[in-house]
Amino acid sequence: MSGSVFTGYTGGLIWGLGGGLVIAIATLFGVWWERKVAGRIQMRLGPQTTGPFGLLQTVADMVKLLLKEDITPTQADAPVFRVAPLIVFVPIAMAVTVIPFAAGWAPLDTSVGMLFFLAVPSVSVIGILMAGWSSGNSYATLGGLRGAAQMISYELPRTLSVLSVVLLAGSLRPVEVMEAWRWWFIPLNGIGFLVYFISSVAECNRGPFDIPEAESELVAGYFADYSGIRWAIFMMSEYGGVIAASLFGAALFLGGWAWAPGLFGTAIFLLLTVVLVTAMIWIKWTFPRMRMDQLMNTAWKVLTPMALLQIAIIGVVIAWL
């Protein structure tokens, strides 16, 4: 495919924009799905009047958010304040491009795909810090600082948990990892998957790790002062993060398209993703929120040792093989 517009800089641009679009659309679905699931858990119906099964509710919400006034507080550092949501969103949209959607194909098939997926979304931390700091609001600042600490802390167990898959597959190129995937990866990577899942939840600032937002403590944390479409971009980043992490987890730990050939495999992959998204939603609506110190304890004292244990197990397995 060399020379095609789908490679190189133009390719990156196209796939990046495409990823953004996919994330935006998936977010609409994701929000609707979360509201439906949460409603069900809480003995409610969720959205039901706008469109079939209320499917258009989130579209309507999005239209509303687009039309809302874009407020910049007078205390805010305006340029930083305005650009922060994009800095949060863009890396997440970029991360989607390396996900192996179908057999032998990922939009951006690079040899460092695994690292790319882990490293690029981390740039969001800077956006969160910027948003929190530039809002000129103590709550937002606290939220931004909490977010930074949390996301950086959870990078470590998450990276380590992915490392075990990389070790087993022997490649950093996602497409190759998928080709090397066998069903017994699942039991072997059990602990790793748990660590990946939990730290992904934390990475996405979702409950029970939604400490940077912490509605009941920090009102809305780092995006307390945002409104309209900028606020919507934060929400899209959150759901985008959830979807991206679920896609990646479904691929690496649950096998993705490796279960079946062709488009059928892609369908299974997407189904597994929905299952993971649902699990994240379910956890959020079941558990209370942790405190900052408990969150840190979990990252450093529980998840990191567990991830290291997983790597050790894989190491032993590889040595034995």
Binding site: A38, Q42, M43, R44, D210, S216, E217, W285, P288, R289
Partner: peptide, 16 residues
């Protein structure tokens, strides 16, 4: 109190 700790569902159950 549950809502303060982020347990929104417990909040709904109690209000039910």
């Amino acid at each position: 109190a549950a809502g303060d700790t982020g347990a929104a569902t417990m909040f709904i159950y109690a209000f039910d």
